[in-house]
Amino acid sequence: MPPLTVQQLLQILPNARSVAGIFLPALNRAMARYKIDSPVRVAAFLAQVGHESGHLRNLVESLNYSVEALLAKFSRDRISEADAKAYGRTAGCPANQQAIANCVYGGAWGAKSLGNKKPGDGWLYRGRGLIQLTGRANYAAAGTGLALPLEEKPELLEQPEHAAMSAAWWWSTHGLSELADADRFQDIGSVINTGKPGRIPHGAAERKALYDRALKVLA
C-alpha cells in the first residue's frame, strides 16, 4: 500500500494534530522497514500505538498513580500496601513517580520479568516510545535490533524516529503482523499490554474503536 498521508493519520488519531507532521515520516519509515504494509496491518499498528502513546503525544510512561490505583493495579509482591501509601498520589501530595517505578518494576519480579537487576533500573527503563518499551532487557534487545545504545541512553526512545522504529521492531519481533492478518486484534493488545494473548487488555474498547476507524480510513 502507499505511504500513509498526514490526512489519513489525523483521521485515525485526531488528537495527534500537534505532532502529526513530525511523526508521519518516522511512522512511514518504520512501517516500511518492518513490513507493516497492508491496510489491516497498518490499521492494527496505528490503533495500538495510538492508544499506548495518547495519539503520539506521550513518549514516556506516566506513573502518576493514586494510592488506590497502585493497590488495584499491582499485586502485593510488586508493591506493598505501606509503599503504595508512601508513594501514591493523595489529595495533598503528588505521586513519587520515581519511587513507584523502582518499586513496581524492580525487586524479584522486575529482575525476572524485565531484566531490571540494578537499583534504579525501574525508573531508568520505564516505558518509552510509541509502544512503551519497558525494562532493561527490552531496551537492550531493542538496542541490538536497532543498532542504538539504548541501555546507555534510554532517552533516545523519546525521539520520534526512534520511538516509531522501536515500536515497529517490537511489533515485528512479537509476530503481531501475523496476528493482524489472522484478525486476532484483541490478542495483539493482550500481548502488548499483558505479555500474553488471550486476555482483555487495558483500554480494549478504545483500541478497537481506533482500529475500526483506521480500517475505514485505509479502505
Rank of each mutant, 00 (worst) to 15 (best):
A141H: 11
P201N: 03
Q11N: 15
A44N: 06
M165G: 00
A147P: 06
L59F: 13
D83C: 04
T194H: 13
L4P: 12
G92I: 04
R76N: 07
S113E: 11
K153S: 10
D187G: 08
G120T: 07
P25N: 10
A99D: 06
E151F: 04
L70P: 00
L13Y: 12
Y211A: 03
L176M: 14
Q186I: 06
W169L: 03
Y125L: 07
K35H: 14
L215A: 09
V6D: 13
L179A: 05
R89V: 05
G54K: 08
R57W: 02
K73P: 01
P39W: 04
N64S: 11
N102R: 12
H55S: 14
C93H: 15
A86V: 11
K153V: 10
E52L: 10
G54L: 08
P2G: 12
R136A: 14
N64L: 05
N58T: 10
P14V: 14
V6I: 15
G203T: 01
I131F: 13
A72T: 09
D83Q: 13
Y105C: 06
Q11S: 15
A26M: 01
K117T: 15
A101E: 05
V104Y: 05
M1R: 12
A101Y: 00
W170S: 12
E81N: 07
S172M: 10
P197S: 07
A180I: 05
T173L: 05
H55T: 09
L13R: 11
P119K: 07
G21L: 15
P154C: 02
L114I: 04
G127R: 01
L150K: 03
G107Q: 03
R17A: 15
S80M: 12
V6K: 14
A99C: 04
A182P: 10
Q132G: 02
K208F: 00
S75A: 13
A219N: 12
N15V: 04
I100P: 01
S53Y: 04
N96T: 14
G115R: 06
F74V: 02
E155R: 09
L215G: 02
L114K: 05
V60Y: 01
C103K: 15
R136Q: 09
E151P: 02
S190W: 00
G115N: 11
R184S: 07
